Amino acid sequence: MIVRALHSVGLRSAHLHALSLSSVVLCLALWIRAKTVDQQERGNAERRALFTGLWAPTLWLIGDSLRDRE
């Protein structure tokens, strides 16, 4: 149902796979940035980076589902 809606909107598997790889790059950038903040704010910055890294497998699997639909 969700895959059908995403497909009808115009999203394709390549879009979701690119977003997945972009979230990995964003995670790494946030992780590197977390090393530059002071100790009190570092925990929050690292959690933000880890949260962003969790998007990658979800987006990749949605992209796989769209590829099967295509």
Rank of each mutant, 00 (worst) to 15 (best):
M1T: 14
I2L: 15
V3P: 00
V3E: 10
V3L: 13
V3I: 15
V3Q: 08
R4I: 02
R4Q: 11
R4D: 15
R4N: 13
A5V: 13
A5N: 11
A5P: 00
L6R: 01
H7L: 04
S8I: 00
S8K: 14
S8L: 07
V9E: 02
V9S: 00
V9W: 01
V9M: 06
L11W: 15
L11V: 08
L11Q: 00
L11D: 00
R12N: 09
R12Y: 10
R12L: 07
S13G: 07
S13L: 00
S13D: 12
S13C: 04
A14S: 14
H15A: 07
H15Y: 06
H15R: 04
H15M: 06
H15I: 03
L16P: 01
L16Q: 05
L16T: 04
H17W: 12
H17T: 07
H17N: 09
H17K: 08
A18H: 01
A18G: 15
L19W: 14
S20L: 03
S20W: 06
S20M: 01
L21M: 11
L21E: 11
L21G: 11
S22R: 14
S22H: 11
S22N: 13
S22Q: 13
S22L: 09
S23F: 07
S23A: 13
V24P: 01
V24D: 08
V24G: 12
C27A: 14
L28F: 12
L28K: 05
L28D: 03
L28C: 12
A29M: 10
L30F: 09
W31T: 04
W31N: 01
W31Q: 05
I32K: 01
I32W: 01
I32C: 07
I32G: 04
I32T: 10
R33V: 05
R33A: 15
R33E: 11
A34R: 02
A34Q: 03
D38R: 12
D38G: 12
Q39I: 07
Q39G: 04
Q39W: 05
Q39R: 11
Q40K: 13
Q40F: 12
E41N: 12
R42L: 05
G43K: 09
G43D: 10
N44M: 09
N44Q: 09
A45M: 09
A45Y: 01
A45G: 05
E46T: 13
R47T: 08
R47N: 10
R47V: 02
R48E: 15
R48I: 12
L50K: 13
F51N: 15
T52H: 04
T52Q: 10
T52Y: 02
G53W: 01
G53I: 03
G53P: 02
G53D: 00
L54T: 14
L54K: 15
L54V: 06
W55Y: 10
W55H: 14
W55C: 12
A56F: 07
P57E: 06
P57Q: 07
P57I: 03
T58L: 13
T58H: 10
L59I: 03
L59E: 02
L59P: 06
L59H: 05
L59T: 02
W60C: 00
W60R: 11
L61Y: 09
L61V: 14
L61C: 07
I62K: 05
I62A: 15
G63R: 01
G63E: 07
G63N: 04
D64C: 07
D64T: 09
S65N: 10
L66W: 04
R67Y: 08
R67I: 00
R67P: 02
D68R: 11
D68S: 11
D68N: 12
D68I: 02
R69P: 00
E70R: 08
